[in-house]
């Protein structure tokens, strides 16, 4: 197992703080810098949640505009990026709600399911199994698999594992408690693993070796 990550000093000021200050003082070019810095991530997150490119483009625009207009309400005790993600997640969920009229969309739904909370398939994967697929096939498989997760698990996995937010930041961005994020993350990871096992497990050799572990 590897080394422990160094933790940035509490007193170190995040570079976004100065940019936010400049925007507040009326410097729009500083906001341009912030938009460029995070537009890619915001687009990715919106697209993951809405699963629709037009919606993702709209969400991204709306989220950045909203953040700009509400910058006065941004408290310096969280990161600007975390705050921005929270806005984008809420906008994305609102979009989803509009599309699926009549169906309530929330990251709280389906959390009671026990499905996938215990691993069942213990087949080992081939070494670097993703290399057995071409890029398009692999992307399709990964998309379908993650889209099959309940909304509340998918978003937690996305922010925590794909976008690299900390557990605390993920909790803040989603308005969830830290224990809730942890329990969802575990289940999201286990369910994704279980589903991917179907694609990535070692192909059985033509003649199975007798005896050894066949009873497992």
């Amino acid at each position: 197992m590897s080394t422990i990550q160094p933790v940035a000093g509490q007193n170190e000021q995040h570079p976004d703080v100065a940019l936010v200050e400049r925007v507040r003082a009326g410097d729009l070019s500083a906001y341009d810098t912030l938009v460029r810095k995070y537009e890619r991530q915001l687009f990715r997150i919106s697209q993951h949640i809405t699963q629709n490119r037009e919606d993702a483009e709209d969400v991204m625009q709306d989220a950045f505009l909203k953040a700009y207009e509400k910058l006065d309400q941004f408290q310096g005790n969280s990161k600007f990026y975390t705050w921005l993600v929270r806005i984008a997640v809420n906008e994305s969920l609102m979009r989803l709600r509009k599309r699926r009229t009549g169906k309530v969309v929330s990251i709280d739904e389906n959390i009671e399911t026990e499905e996938g909370s215990v691993p069942r398939d213990f087949a080992d994967w081939a070494p670097n199994p993703e290399q057995n697929y071409n890029q398009a096939e692999l992307a399709e498989t990964l998309k379908k698999t993650i889209q099959g997760l309940p909304e509340g698990f998918r978003v937690v996995f996305l922010l925590r594992d794909v976008e690299g937010l900390s557990t605390e930041e993920t909790a803040e961005a989603l308005g969830l408690s830290v224990p809730a994020v942890k329990s969802r993350l575990l289940r999201a990871r286990l369910q994704l693993r279980e589903r991917l096992t179907r694609f990535f497990k070692k192909k059985m050799p033509p003649v199975a070796p007798r005896g050894s572990e066949a009873e497992a």
């Binding site: 687009f43 990715r44 697209q47 993951h48 993702a56 994967w125 199994p129 993703e130 692999l138 992307a139 990964l142 998309k143 993650i146 996995f157 594992d161 794909v162 690299g164 990871r189 994704l192 693993r193 991917l196 990535f200």
Partner: peptide, 12 residues
Amino acid sequence: KTIEIYRCHELY
């Protein structure tokens, strides 16, 4: 490996 694969492949 699941986490690594999702982290390394930008789906969108």
